[in-house]
């Protein structure tokens, strides 16, 4: 019994040390964000700022059009996520319950496209969007991400687990496919859909390379791209850089802390990143 207790205590100590190491960058970010400029360059560094500089957040917020970036990120993330969920639910239903010519072919085709690195598609997609004059618009940031076969694949598995008897019974009662999908399948798959949605929210909010390429004015920039642009203005004002990093990171940390169980369940089920 005591041996077990000692090993448990040892485990907790090791894991705590590991967890602290993981959290140090966040603590350091917050600590720097609250310092005065001279204190940020003090050697040796201090952990707790002498005089908390809460106004650093206000200064950083106004030093660049962060409000615009924030609104852009909010719009892009919301529309992308809702749109993607909509296309995903419909497609997953078709693959899960409907019979049609070319089903296996289409499924295999989509599956094989998952092997292709998205970075390779950037160039032709840029050309396509330029043709439609969509570069530097929300359209460029949203439209290419409105469908994800990975999400379809994941949701199809959840849909497949719903007993066929329910479907047959609903059909016998004269319920249409459409009605059955939205009143039975979707509510029954709520947690899977939530998980897919949250993973897309995180991915979309944090996305960088694509928004960097398709935007070149502050008007349509998202937060990560705006933050990157801010680095050249801020120079070595580390307290402002860290304050800005904090408010870019914070929304996703809140989402994560509130909906942690869905995120972890989502990753566990699919085992792949989007």
């Amino acid at each position: 019994m005591t041996k077990k207790r000692i090993s448990q205590a040892l485990l907790i100590i090791i894991l705590t040390l590991g967890a602290i190491t993981m959290l140090v960058p966040f603590i350091w970010m917050l600590s720097t964000a609250l310092k005065t400029a001279p204190e940020t360059v003090k050697v040796p560094p201090t952990w707790i700022p002498k005089h908390m500089q809460w106004q650093n957040f206000v200064t950083a917020w106004h030093a660049a059009p962060f409000l615009t970036y924030f609104i852009n990120s909010l719009i892009v993330t919301t529309v992308t996520t809702i749109g993607q969920l909509f296309t995903t639910i419909l497609a997953a239903f078709a693959f899960s319950r409907l019979n049609f010519y070319g089903k296996n072919f289409l499924f295999a085709l989509f599956l094989s496209t998952m092997m292709v690195p998205g970075e390779m598609l950037i160039i032709p997609n840029f050309v396509t969007l330029s043709k439609f004059s969509l570069i530097n618009t929300y359209g460029a940031l949203i439209i290419p991400w409105l469908a994800s076969f990975f999400a379809v694949f994941t949701l199809r598995q959840t849909f497949n687990a719903i007993p066929n008897e329910l479907y047959y019974a609903a059909k016998l009662d004269g319920s249409s496919d459409w009605h059955f999908l939205w009143t039975m399948m979707v509510p029954l798959s709520k947690s899977a859909i939530t998980a897919i949605g949250i993973l897309e929210v995180i991915g979309s909010w944090n996305s960088f390379m694509w928004p960097l390429i398709v935007t070149n004015t502050a008007k349509v920039r998202t937060l990560p791209v705006g933050l990157n642009a801010f680095t050249s203005d801020a120079g070595t004002q580390f307290q402002l850089l860290m304050a800005a990093s904090t408010f870019v990171i914070l929304p996703m940390i809140i989402v994560y802390l509130c909906l942690q169980k869905y995120i972890i369940a989502g990753i566990s089920k699919s085992g792949l990143k989007g």
């Binding site: 894991l15 705590t16 590991g18 967890a19 993981m22 959290l23 960058p25 966040f26 350091w28 970010m29 720097t32 995180i202 909010w205 944090n206 960088f208 937060l223 990560p224 791209v225 933050l227 990157n228 680095t231 580390f238 850089l241 860290m242 800005a244 990093s245 904090t246 870019v248 990171i249 996703m252 940390i253 989402v255 994560y256 802390l257 942690q260 995120i263 972890i264």
Partner: peptide, 22 residues
Amino acid sequence: FKTAYFLPFVTSTVAISLVWQW
């Protein structure tokens, strides 16, 4: 513990790279 170890994954790469730069 899970929360702590997983936290970096949900954060913006741009923001967290700036923190590491510092």
